[in-house]
Amino acid sequence: MAVPTTRMLVLAVTRMLQPVHGYDVRRELLSWRAENWANVKPGSIYGALKTMQRDGLIAVEGVGQDGARPERTTYRITPEGEKVFGEMVRESLWSAELLRHPYVAAVSMFPQAPREEVVAALRSRILKFEAEIVQLEREEARILAGSGDPTETEPHHVADAVRLAADHLRADLNWSRKTLARIESGELDVWSGVFAKSSTLESPMS
């Protein structure tokens, strides 16, 4: 059973910065780029806090107001929350499930699309990955140049999450380059047989 990622990350930040406002939990996870690599939506963070409070994993530390700002509730993790958090971290660390790559479905559709469109799409994919890898490398360097103190900037372990994302992109980039080269050289040809005759897509290049 997969660990609920949003709940685990929200618990982690609450534990790290407690007592902490929901806004600060949201800001911290956004700085970790969790929306990109864990699909943690900003709006789901507040929902997770309410659910975890209901389940007894976190408790309200206090409600305060700073000047004209709206009232903010601060939270602290409970002993039950510590227990559940430990279980989730352990299960996540030992997870070795294969990624379900959404592009595999597109690859299986290569014969159903015109060859020139597949080639153009692969070239676009390669350019996109090259740019994203450069961006991730800069982000990793920026995080590691900071203090690593979570009260000041992103903790250094976030750089490892960024590096993992970059390594996955490099694998995709390597596959895309090799596949494009195989198509252009004629080694990979799924368009000269029956599939080409049954293709239902019109080429936008024509």
Rank of each mutant, 00 (worst) to 15 (best):
E117A: 02
E116R: 06
G148F: 04
G146H: 09
E140I: 10
A34Y: 03
G81W: 02
L29A: 02
D66Q: 13
R69W: 11
R76I: 01
E35V: 15
L98M: 02
R142Y: 01
A141P: 07
R115I: 00
L99M: 06
K83P: 07
W94F: 05
R90C: 12
R123G: 13
P114V: 07
E116Q: 04
T151W: 12
E137K: 14
L57N: 01
P111I: 09
A145M: 06
N174M: 13
I45V: 15
T78S: 09
D172N: 10
A165S: 14
N174G: 12
A165E: 14
L30E: 08
T153E: 11
R54E: 00
T78H: 06
S44L: 00
N36I: 14
A161H: 15
M88H: 05
F110D: 15
A113F: 07
R72V: 12
G43H: 05
D66Y: 13
A105H: 06
G56D: 00
S108K: 10
I133D: 07
G86F: 07
I126R: 01
R138S: 10
A131M: 03
S108Y: 05
A171F: 04
A38C: 02
G62W: 03
W32H: 02
E71Y: 07
R115W: 01
S44V: 02
R33V: 08
L127D: 05
S92V: 15
H168F: 04
R163Q: 14
K83Y: 10
V119C: 02
W37T: 11
S44F: 01
A34M: 06
G62K: 08
A166F: 04
E132S: 02
T78Q: 11
G146K: 13
E87S: 05
R72G: 11
P111D: 10
P155H: 15
T153A: 13
G86V: 15
G67Q: 12
V162F: 08
T73H: 00
W37F: 12
D160R: 15
E71V: 09
F85S: 13
E152A: 15
R100V: 12
G148R: 05
L93M: 15
P155I: 15
E82L: 14
S31Q: 01
A121P: 03
N36C: 09
L122Q: 11
A166N: 06
F129M: 08
A113M: 05
D172C: 11
E28D: 00
E82H: 12
R90V: 15
V40K: 01
H168E: 02
E80C: 12
A59N: 10
E137Q: 10
D149T: 06
N39D: 08
G56W: 01
Y46W: 06
W37A: 14
T73M: 03
F85Q: 14
M88P: 04
F85E: 10
A141D: 08
I45F: 08
V89N: 14
I143V: 10
S44D: 00
N39W: 08
D66I: 15
E130H: 11
E28M: 06
R76H: 02
